[in-house]
Computed example of a mutant assay.
Amino acid sequence: MKTIPRLNFAHLPTPIEDLPRLTQALGGPRILVKRDDQTGLAFGGNKTRKLEFLVAEAQEQGATMLISAGAIQSNHCRQTVAAAARFGFDCTLVLTGEKPKQASANFLLDQLFGAEIVTVEDRKDRDRILQETFDKAVAAGKRPYLVPYGGSSPTGTMGYTFAMEEFMNQNRKVDWIVFGTSSGGTHAGLVLGQRVFGFKGMVLGISIDEPEAQIKAHVSELATQASEKLSEQIQFTSDDVLVNENYCQAGYGVFGEGEREAIKLFASTEGLLLDPVYTGRAAAGMIDLIRKGFFKKDETILFWHTGGQPALFADKYSQDIIRE
C-alpha cells in the first residue's frame, strides 16, 4: 500500500457507543453510534478526517491559502477554516445563502477562526464565484489550495477509507453502517475501505439532497479514483453503492418533522445531539426504515455520527427544533 501524506490532528479513534434506550424506544434492531462528532477540531465532525489528508497535500504543494465553499451554515467550511488557522494558512470561504443579519453557529465560528467570507445568494453561481475567487488569489501572488466541496476529492476520500480500517480494528460486529451522504467523500471512503479492509456488512447512505442515481454514479467514480492512491485501481460501479433517496425531497437544509423527531428522540433517550441538516435527516431515515421493518430485529446497526451540532444554534433552526 502506498504511503499517503497525512497530518495527525484528529482525536482518533473515535469511540463506538451502545444506544440501548433508543434501541428500546424503536423496538429493535440494536443501534450503536460511531462518534465522529468527537474528532476534536472546532467541535469535530467528519470533515476533520478528510482535512488530515487535504491539508497535508496543500502543504506538500507549497500552498499558503485554503479556499473552499459550502452553505452559510456549512460544517465543512467551519472545520476547513479551523484547520487553516491551526496550520498557518489564510482562508477564504464562498458561502451560499442569504447572509444572516446576526452571525450565529457555524457562520459565527467561521469569522472567529479568521475566514474571509464571500457570500453568494444563488447556489447556481457558487462554482463560478469560487473559481473567480481562486483566480484572483493566484493573480494577487498568493498560493491557494482549493479544498473541494465537502472535502470530497480522491485525497479527501482517504479520510473515510482509513476510518473503515479504524472501525474494523475496534472489533464491533455490525450488519449495517448508516450515515448521511451528500458530496460523496465520506460515502466513497467507506465503500473503498469496505473493499480494502474486508467489512462484510452493508454500507447504506441516506441521501441528504441528491437523487440515488446521481450519488451512485459519483460515489463509485470517486471510490475508483481514490483507490489509485492506495495501490492499483479498483473499479467500482453503481451496483457497489447503496443509497436511499426517500428522505431528501424537501431539499437541502429544509428542516421537517422527520428531522425534528429524530433530534428530539436521540436527545431524550441518549443525551446525544444531532444536527438539523445531515445527521438529523440520516437518523430520520434510519428511524423510518426501522419502523417499516427494513432492518431485521436481530441485526445491529452502526449509525455513523458525522457531527454538525453547531448548526443547532443557527437562528434558522433553533426555534423550530423545540416547537411542539
Rank of each mutant, 00 (worst) to 15 (best):
L51M: 10
A314Y: 05
G193A: 11
I215A: 11
I177R: 03
V254H: 11
Q170R: 10
S68Q: 09
Q214K: 14
A282P: 04
G307D: 02
E221V: 00
R143V: 09
R35C: 04
Y160A: 04
T300D: 00
V94F: 09
I321Q: 00
R195P: 03
A223E: 04
E232A: 14
D90N: 13
D240S: 06
Q102H: 13
S74K: 08
L108K: 08
Q233M: 14
M286P: 07
A10M: 01
F294D: 00
A282M: 05
A69K: 12
E221T: 13
I301E: 05
M168K: 09
E116T: 15
G189F: 07
K316H: 08
A267R: 02
C248P: 01
I234Q: 13
N8C: 08
Q233H: 04
R128H: 14
W304S: 07
R323I: 11
T161K: 00
R49Y: 05
V33Y: 03
I321G: 01
H187P: 01
L95P: 01
T157G: 04
E17Q: 15
R30A: 12
D275F: 06
K2F: 07
G258N: 10
A56M: 08
V219M: 11
P310G: 01
P5K: 11
A69M: 14
K124P: 05
N46K: 02
F113E: 00
W176P: 01
L289M: 15
C91A: 15
T23P: 02
G28D: 06
G205N: 04
V191N: 08
A63V: 14
V254A: 08
M168N: 04
T306Q: 08
G308H: 03
A314D: 05
T186S: 12
M158F: 02
V178D: 05
